[in-house]
Design a protein around this nucleic acid. Structure first.
Lengths: 207, 207
DNA sequence: CGTCGGTGAGTAATTACTCACTCACTGGTA
DNA sequence: TACCAGTGAGTGAGTAATTACTCACCGACG
């Protein structure tokens, strides 16, 4: 019998959040029982409620905790200053499409939105809106500089993020296999999209 | 007291499926109780189990029932024969992005995939795979005819569907408002994408 | 010895599902 | 016409299991 040292309140809380996050991501809020969470965290069910007053509060703590990564936005900002279009788009795409990316957050996001959790919007804002807001601003700037064609920047940004997110959806949620490497996939998407945005002397749009 | 004529077995079954579909779409499988379904269909809970042996069987019946629309694929086929690229893409996009489109199917699809229902894959295949398989074939043909650039047709098809599906996701699941009309949105997406696919004499890709 | 991490044993409510039963209608028969 | 047995739609009242959550209590350590 090894005698486990008792955890501090903070450690336990973190452990519970981690255990619950993976369960909620796998089975949704309603599909996960507090007993399962307790067992996954290696404690009694009663202790769960010592740390979080309700199951829903625990769920909220998960959504509130996971924060966006700022270093990516920094790198994007830098590439944007240099007007390195390809790099801007590649950075954003390969942040989502890369080997070993964790599907937990995507699943949690979808579950929370579908199940209509109150914190869903905040979660969405922190994880996704920032990206397409940033991107829309950049596209707008480049249109102003006559480097890109005249399109609605917000629609264009969503279109690009859409390619990327949809790819993850197919792969991580629907189990569609990737027939190309991560790099090839990203390169193709960036290529297609940038080419679509670029101005070309020949052929104007029809409508 | 108006005396309701008793329904036939088929009518009841259809009513139950309709009631259950909207509830499952709204709250997921685990979030919906059989009592709610019965009440929504206006019958006793016991009758639900006279028609479907288990709750899961009822869920399965829903997924198995809803079929894809063939008239769209017919129209696409026709446009494809005429090599009317813009029309092919516009048809597919505006089938998904149009006023009054029902979000029930999209929600059911996501729920079933997230909750890992066995019939999810079949559901996905009937509603989505057909589209990007068709589209990929067409893109492949057009590449062969040197009308489009050399890209992986499957990736390209997914990229386009990705724009469209992501748009619906934002709008119908995450509640992001559409700041453009349906037509403008579709036109922008098609325009961006087609322009990206087209060959342009000037400026070759950098890598 | 008091505080804090931790638990076993509950409880009230809800859940999917069952069962014994009623009611409305049909077709055959006298 | 009158009657009656059969059938299938429909239900009220359960039941066993599960669920989120509670509470009285334990024991280690400063």
């Amino acid at each position: 019998m090894t005698r486990q040292p008792r955890s501090t309140s903070q450690q336990r809380q973190a452990g519970l959040i981690a255990a619950a996050a993976s369960l909620f991501a796998a089975k949704g809020f309603n599909g996960t029982t507090t007993k399962e969470i307790a067992r996954a965290a290696g404690v009694s069910e009663a202790l769960v409620f010592k740390h979080f007053p309700t199951k829903r509060a625990l769920y909220g703590a998960i959504l509130a905790e996971k924060v966006t990564v700022d270093e990516l936005l920094g790198a994007v900002e830098e590439a944007a200053k240099k007007r390195d279009d390809r790099r801007v788009f590649t950075l954003i795409a390969s942040f989502r499409i890369r080997p070993g990316v964790d599907s937990t957050l995507l699943r949690l996001l979808l579950f929370s939105a579908l199940e209509g959790h109150e914190l869903s919007e905040m979660f969405f804002g922190k994880h996704h809106r920032v990206f397409y807001d940033h991107l829309a601003t950049y596209i707008g700037t480049r249109i102003g500089e006559r480097a890109f064609r005249e399109v609605d920047p917000l629609l264009a940004a969503r279109a690009f993020i859409g390619m990327v997110v949809h790819h993850r959806l197919l792969h991580e949620i629907f189990g569609v296999s990737m027939h190309r490497s991560h790099e090839e996939t990203v390169a193709t998407y960036v290529d297609l999209f940038l080419n679509g945005l670029m101005k070309h002397s020949t052929r104007e749009r029809t409508r």
